[in-house]
Design a protein around this nucleic acid. Structure first.
Lengths: 351, 351
DNA sequence: TGGCATAACTTAAACGATTTTGACCGCCAG
DNA sequence: CTGGCGGTCAAAATCGTTTAAGTTATGCCA
């Protein structure tokens, strides 16, 4: 119980206990290499000296593994913590990691490689969540360490995805009733613009790296076509960030044009919440005067008024699966998770 | 651009480039120690070889620092990601850390020390969020590394808190109008029980390690006393976890007794959301028939219907301050952040 | 020219663990 | 008596860096 000033190391401890460093190391790592009595003595007395186990840096340098897993987030960490979907994903990941007794290091693919390339050498495995922005993916995928790509695909790396297009089509088909419907879309980041704006014709044909937004939009367009509804680019509002505030800006614009849209397809629940709020402030009744659908099925989607019709994509489970697959060699190269249409109040009566 | 099988190390790179290891190291760390021309050559060619900077384990072993900061969460990581307040706190922390070019490692104070004591040796500093459950705090506070205690106080460690009692008193005083009021409380974890239950007289007098819940309860009790309202233990519902589901159980019980409470004081917004939902399902009008207040001011508190009267405790800013203070030696030992009463719809008309 | 500071690198010793190899001790079988 | 064997423990090499100290080479001034 004595408090020491400088942290002890294993060598010092072994000296004080009168045994070799190997023996102390074995006491912590390989119980079968020494008598149980001695092991207990070492564990007990070293703790009393203030030694709390081998230094991670030294240990992982020597062993070549650290029991640390990194989740590399597409956006800044700060943003990811504010996103309910990312939080749920991390919830699932950490649930499994704690069972596997692994630690969680959070990195951002946004960071200049310089800033964190050292940190990238520590983890034993990497979970990339969302299409990475920098060149971190390139570097790390060369390292030979286990890696999994979630919500995007790249090269030969194992991946975990949902069918965004099919799910978006399904929810749109549900909410669009007739060909006279006036449909607007509030889109996740899709183009380079950093402002809320309407799309232009060229945007729809351009190459797009934002696969999630792109695929969901394709689903919407497909559904509209099937329903005989026109969805021109200027009825698609682009938001650079997935926040209710962005959606509010878009919704003010969309809901003040004449004739007003009868349906708004939102690429995320977070966006839908913003739209909902604007509708309320404009005294537009949902779902009577305006039907709204979201995507993701975050917890709040079932609590807000009216509750949101949306697509459940099991974000927590996605995190669990990603973490489990990371160290399983015998899992399929590209996994596709099921999604489910969740019908609630915001899309009007079920038919 | 050549893909190598085994990751290169600095020594190997230096050999291939025909310079010493020190020079390569300096190229990465100390630009002033070599000519700019050579430095550029080394940086360029080593990247082409597939070397992406010094190994973190080796570097931090040698330097004694890692540029990693750990946030030690009181509960499991998994739980913390589901808690909006913790997420906001982490958002603030990560915002500052990314500016300081530090990485974020998440640990749980719950984990048996055995599981992660190695990981504890890596970080340069520790942010303890919430009163820790295990003995990690003991161990780490002895290490001499920078440390800050958030939402609790312990020993001589610098801490960051709000005045929970005063804030709880203020919000209770606001919502309680007259001495005839019937008040119920939905409490955060306060006692050892793992079920939703009512408190008993003994619980109010017992020693309590859950300082947040304890202090908020003291504030409620104080306000009741000042208003001349009786708040007996059996009108205080205990929830073992901060989730809407727990609150729903409590609220069903509380709202089906006769006479029904006129005010429910919830120790968190998350709990209040559960109560709100039950009130709606029982067709009890809020705020007309029942007034509800929360605590924390999470984003959803301003989006739900009716919006929640609550206490704003600036969780994001709290995270920022914690991260900033960690490495500032000249900050006060115990900081107290301001809170603010936020009056919205759920507490009825303002007077 | 000599002396000396300075720039540009190199050498080599840590950093704190893990692990292979081998030493030592007692004991039993041959 | 001795060789071998199981059970323990110690010595030393090694992991990939950083950095203090040392070595040249060069420029500058008296």
């Amino acid at each position: 119980m004595s408090a020491s000033n400088k942290p002890l190391n294993l060598k010092e401890v072994s000296r004080l206990l009168g045994v070799s460093t190997a023996t102390v190391s074995n006491a912590f790592n390989r119980p079968d290499q020494l008598s149980e009595a001695l092991r207990q003595r070492i564990l007990k007395e070293s703790a009393e000296l203030g030694y709390h186990g081998p230094n991670l840096a030294a240990r992982s340098l020597r062993k070549g593994k650290s029991d640390v897993v990194a989740v590399v987030l597409a956006d800044t960490l700060s943003y990811s913590f504010s996103d309910p979907v990312a939080s749920q994903f991390l919830q699932g990941v950490s649930e499994v990691l704690s069972h596997k007794k692994k630690q969680l290091l959070l990195l951002s693919s946004r960071l200049a490689s310089k800033e964190q390339s050292s940190a990238e050498s520590l983890p034993d495995g990497f979970i990339f969540y969302g299409a990475p922005k920098g060149d971190a993916f390139e570097r790390i995928s060369r390292s030979g360490k286990p890696i999994i790509a979630v919500d995007f695909e790249q090269g030969k790396v194992p991946s975990l995805n949902i069918n965004n297009q099919a799910a978006a089509r399904a929810v749109a088909l549900h909410v669009i009733r007739e060909s006279e419907e006036r449909v607007a879309v509030v889109s996740l980041r899709l183009i380079a613009s950093d402002r809320v704006c309407r799309l232009e014709k060229a945007d729809l044909q351009a190459e797009c790296k934002e696969v999630i937004a792109y695929n969901r939009l394709q689903g919407y367009l497909q559904a509209c076509q099937e329903k005989g509804v026109d969805l021109p680019p200027h009825m698609i509002w682009h938001t650079p960030m997935n926040t209710p505030e962005m959606a509010e800006k878009a919704a003010y614009e969309a809901l003040t044009i004449t004739p007003r849209p009868t349906v708004i397809l939102c690429m995320s629940d977070v966006l839908a919440l913003g739209v909902l709020r604007v509708a309320q402030s404009l005294h537009i009744r949902v779902p009577e005067d305006l039907r709204i659908v979201g995507f993701d099925d975050i917890p709040e989607a079932n609590r807000c008024t009216p509750s949101l019709t949306t697509v459940c994509q099991q974000s927590i489970e996605k995190g669990r699966i990603a973490a489990r697959c990371l160290f399983d060699s015998d899992n399929p190269q590209a996994q596709l998770m099921e999604t489910r249409l969740v019908v609630r109040r915001s899309s009007g009566d079920t038919h």
